[in-house]
Design a protein around this nucleic acid. Structure first.
Length: 470
RNA sequence: UCCUCGGUAGCUCAAUUGGCUGAGCAAGCGGCUGUUAACCGCAAGGUUGGAGGUUCGAGUCCUCCCCGAGGAGCCA
């Protein structure tokens, strides 16, 4: 049967032709259910869960914006319809019409309202749905990721992620940053360190970008302040709850900007992202059982600690036998010059109630392009931002080398081919200026704000070591 | 790449010293007018990841392989 009103928005549905003998109500979205208390409405969605007591059936229906309990009483619909509802498989698609009624017993999102069903149309009777309302293992859920996304938790995460990304873009757009997209196919290792995915560019080797930063550094000389926002690729054999092979990153870059200026931008930026998300996605965070009191404190300024002081802090704690979550292993001491392991990072972050900057890392453990500190060349003008609660590094940033000779020496020292970086060196020859930038990892930020224990849930279809499908 | 743990019904798990593979849920059938992962009853569901070996006998022990999970290193 033709249903010309399907897919119409709430705004235009009133003018849509009606083809049924019984008048259909306006098609609305569940997130707006409270506006329609006492009124007849029509919902388009899927059967998420079903319980029943014989001649009384409870259908939990979700429509992508929320979940509501639809109640079917014997007598309020035809016996055939009641019988059809009783045997309707989970995840069947349906169009249901009924009267909205406030009821504190009604579960759902937002909840508190139920639909007294007067009509029900099955669009498609679902095949047996593999994901039940019971516990499932990680492997099974990941194999069924295309279906798992429908569950409440995953739905909430998708919505929070979208808001976080919008906040990331809005703040930059509103503060004079110009979006300039950077290439994904690149001719060589941008930073020369991490493993890249290689592909074939008409017979020449090409690599999937692991950062847009070097291109950003060209773009600031055109537009002053820029950012790129896109997927990046790391072929490392990393197999932890914090790593993806393909992840999204926002990378702002600013001309005439020193490290100290950069940190002020970063703390304003992260504060905005967190506070906007708290305000606009409170329901989703509640569904995720996120304790938001820690997030509420994420307001600039953030504490700053030098690498030197962080090492001292770590070693003092290690000497006291401090242990760190999640495994309560003893915090190992480190030598000056070592990079922080996950326990050290977690410990340092745990000493503060908001994200903390660790600045002036040893140059030897950072990328070649970071500006050395004047008078102390063994450290560079870099800063990482560590998220609280063990979520680790969410930002890596630095002031970039602006002198062509210093940059050339660094490229040689790292054994990188000068020819591949000729254009990058050129930037320092035509009106060079101090400039700085950072990269913020979208998925780690989503994991942190949502309070997730694994990064695989922060993106619809994660690409991980051993996981390319679905 | 390395370390640790795991793979038994569609799903989540159990199976004593090596001794007839067993539950719950889902799916099927029947019942139930306020259920919240409902409940009650009936019936059904198995090449125990794969190959080889030890043994009277292997889900269990040994070897190799495959797959997955957590962690290390590295990073956002």
């Amino acid at each position: 049967m033709k249903r010309p009103h399907l897919g119409k928005s709430e705004r235009d549905v009133k003018n849509a032709p009606r083809t049924r003998s019984t008048p259909l109500a306006d098609i609305i979205r569940i997130e707006h259910i409270a506006r329609y208390d006492g009124q007849p409405v029509t919902l388009q969605g899927w059967l998420q869960l079903k319980t029943g007591k014989g001649k009384l059936q409870f259908l939990r229906v979700r429509d992508g914006t929320g979940v509501i309990q639809a109640v079917i009483f014997q007598g309020s619909v035809t016996p055939e319809l009641l019988e059809a509802a009783k045997r309707l498989p989970l995840e069947s698609s349906l169009v249901v019409t009924g009267v909205v009624k406030a009821d504190p017993r009604a579960p759902g999102i937002p909840g508190g309202y139920e639909l007294g069903v007067t009509d029900l149309q099955v669009v498609q009777e679902s095949a047996e749905y593999p994901i039940g309302p019971k516990e499932h293992g990680v492997e099974f859920l990941m194999d069924n990721r295309h279906l798992w996304l429908r569950s409440n938790r995953q739905w909430a995460i998708l919505r929070v992620r979208a808001t976080i990304i919008k906040a990331m873009r809005d703040w930059l757009d509103d503060n004079g940053f110009i979006l300039v997209d950077t290439p994904i196919l690149t001719p060589s290792a941008a930073e020369g360190t991490t493993t890249l995915f290689q592909t074939d560019f008409h017979g020449e080797p090409a690599f999937l970008a692991q950062t847009g930063q070097l291109y950003n550094e060209a773009n600031i000389f055109a537009v002053g302040k820029t950012y790129c926002f896109g997927p990046t690729f790391r072929a490392e054999k990393s197999k932890t709850r914090r790593h993806l092979q393909e992840f999204w990153m926002v990378e702002p870059e600013i001309a005439f900007c020193k490290l100290e200026d950069l940190l002020e931008i970063e703390e304003q930026y992260v504060s905005y992202i967190v506070q906007i998300t708290l305000a606009e996605r409170a329901n989703e965070l509640k569904l995720l059982e996120r304790d938001t009191t820690a997030l509420a404190k994420v307001i600039a300024p953030f504490p700053r600690i030098s690498y030197d002081d962080a090492v001292a802090m770590i070693n003092a704690a290690a000497a006291r036998g401090v242990t760190v979550p999640p495994n309560d292993e003893p915090l190992p001491a480190i030598a000056w010059g070592d990079d922080f392991g996950a326990p050290a990072e977690t410990f340092v972050a745990s000493q503060f109630d908001r994200p903390v900057f660790v600045h002036h890392y040893p140059s030897a453990i950072k990328a070649f392009y970071m500006e050395p500190e004047p008078g102390r060349a063994e450290v560079c003008r870099s800063a990482d931002l560590l998220a609280p609660e063990g979520y680790g590094e969410i930002i890596g940033g630095s002031e970039r080398m602006s002198d062509p000779d210093v940059l050339l020496a660094a490229i040689d020292r790292h054994g990188l081919p000068r020819q591949a970086y000729a254009w990058y060196i050129d930037l320092r020859r035509y009106g060079s200026a101090p400039h700085s930038g950072f990269g913020l990892g979208v998925e780690r930020t989503v994991a942190w704000i949502c309070g997730l224990d694994h990064i695989r849930e922060t993106i619809a279809f994660p690409r991980m070591l051993n996981r390319l499908n679905p």
